[in-house]
């Protein structure tokens, strides 16, 4: 019994050491540098910028209309209020559902898949234009 315990402890230590060695060669889970943070912010901005390009282009619809035509600077999209109840749909929906609703109706376009990179880009752009506004889930 005692011997078994020793062996399994030894195994544990070895495994942990091995994992530590591997991890050390990449990074520690809880550590990142300022350069990392800067790079990640840049990655975000690249996607938000792509969202802005989609925002002002007619590509999302079929009638040459763009989101920016009715929502300058993404105004009146209120991303901080989602998910929320939409009375016309009779249920709580996410921001992406509402983005699709506007694509399909005023822009007469096809809905995007919820994980479409263009969808993420639009969401990133709207969140960026709305930065600083406190979350207000459910607010109408």
């Amino acid at each position: 019994m005692k011997r078994m315990l020793t062996v399994s402890l030894l195994v544990c230590v070895l495994v942990a050491l091995g994992a530590g060695l591997v991890l050390q060669r990449t990074s520690r889970a809880d550590e990142f540098t300022e350069q990392d943070a800067e790079r990640w912010q840049k990655e975000f901005m690249v996607v938000a910028q792509k969202g802005r390009e989609l925002w002002v282009s007619p590509k999302l619809g079929t009638n040459q209309v763009s989101c920016a035509q009715c929502h300058p600077n993404g105004a009146n999209t209120h991303p901080e209020t989602y998910p929320k109840f939409q009375k016309q749909l009779g249920r709580v929906i996410g921001l992406r559902d509402m983005i699709n609703w506007c694509i399909m109706n005023p822009m007469e376009g096809k809905p995007l898949k919820l994980n479409d990179p263009n969808m993420v880009a639009i969401e990133a752009y709207l969140a960026y234009e709305r930065r600083g506004v406190p979350l207000a889930p459910g607010k109408h």
């Binding site: 035509q69 600077n73 105004a75 009146n76 005023p106 234009e129 930065r131």
Partner: peptide, 13 residues
């Protein structure tokens, strides 16, 4: 044609 948001709806302005 369509309505516009009031400028105060743009959080950055």
């Amino acid at each position: 044609a369509w309505p516009w948001p009031y400028p105060q709806s743009y959080a950055q302005a």
